[in-house]
Amino acid sequence: MATDTEDLAPYERWTRGAIQNPRRVYTGLFYVATIFFLITTLFPFYWLLVIALTPTGMLGQIGITPPAIDPGSFVEIFERLPFHVYMFNSFVLALLTTAIVLLLGSLAGYVFGRLTFPGRTPLMLIVLAISYFPPAAFLLPLFELFTGNVEVLGVQSPVLFNTPGAMVMPFSALFMPLAIFILATFYSQIPDGLEDAARVEGTTRLGALFRVIIPLSAPGVATAGVLTFIVVYNEFFFSFLMNDGQAENWAPLVWGILNYQGQYSQFYNLMAAASIVGVLPIAILVVVAQEKIVSGLTAGALKE
């Protein structure tokens, strides 16, 4: 055997080694795959950074590295536009939506997760079906409604265009079903005895929900909350169409980034810098909350 190996060409020897000892190949493939995924996910961020660091006049000469490094864009974005206001708007919209979704979703989750009543499953399916519709399907009627063009029994609909209501309401409606689903799964796993105990001790059903069931479902509530927050913070469609793009009219982050397009020139470096600044809060949130999110999602998946 030993003499055989010595006679073989290096390539053949390597192949034979790989067959006899596949662990080395697996390790190698693991690194190849990991590096591939790291590059595909991280390269866009690197590219954003390259563009953001390139001075305005040299945007045509970008290579794999910036032709010159000028971090001035990160300051300029706040000078040209009140970018911090756009970010603040996004933050407020996301927080408001998350609060509404968690509050109403908890009540609905309690009902769907802990009570039995006729028609529970069909009702849950109908609620979930709402989230399957493309948001565009709701746009025209909602736009008419929020711009005061709908009259019901002689009462004109309120003009919510350019206010948070025009965005928070559709967001809440669209992202509520998923939250209800996650929360219902979690709430249904709290033993009945604990709720009974709380009620005997002196809470109402609602009190038991807030004092016992929700605290014990913290990972689920965190998951639903963080997912809603991220989705709303990044939302484009309604954010773009339900206001006129002015920071003082509750235009969110995406409007801020798009507003660096001038009529005659595109400030790509500013847009890139704004994107990086805008994505930072979410990146931090994900890093902080990721353990809870993962445990929340898998807990929902594993039980039952």
Partner: peptide, 16 residues
């Protein structure tokens, strides 16, 4: 239950 003047001990103990 809370207004009935009762206290209850459960089979599965049900401590929070």
């Amino acid at each position: 239950p809370k207004d009935r003047g009762i206290a209850m001990v459960f089979q599965n103990i049900a401590l929070f």
